[in-house]
């Protein structure tokens, strides 16, 4: 397992915990995940917002 895979799995796990416990609103969790990935260098900022237009 590379460092990148470990990082992504860790972020997803934390997100899952938040989604389940509902400690924080889910829209906020999702954006936090996005920022964590962008800051962790897993994504360019341009890619970070490419999810907003999602064609069917």
């Amino acid at each position: 397992m590379t460092m990148a895979i470990g990082l992504i799995l860790a972020i997803l796990l934390v997100a899952l915990v938040f989604f389940v416990t509902e400690l924080v609103r889910m829209d906020l969790v999702a954006v936090l995940v996005l920022s964590a990935l962008a800051l962790g260098g897993r994504m360019t900022p341009a890619e970070a917002f490419s999810g907003f237009p999602t064609p069917p």
Partner: peptide
């Protein structure tokens, strides 16, 4: 870039409650 920096600002506003979610 501006988009990322201001998104972080929005997250901070939500977490610190200066703008209620």
């Amino acid at each position: 870039p501006a988009a990322a920096a201001f998104t972080l600002g929005v997250i901070a506003s939500m977490l610190l409650r200066t703008v209620p979610p």
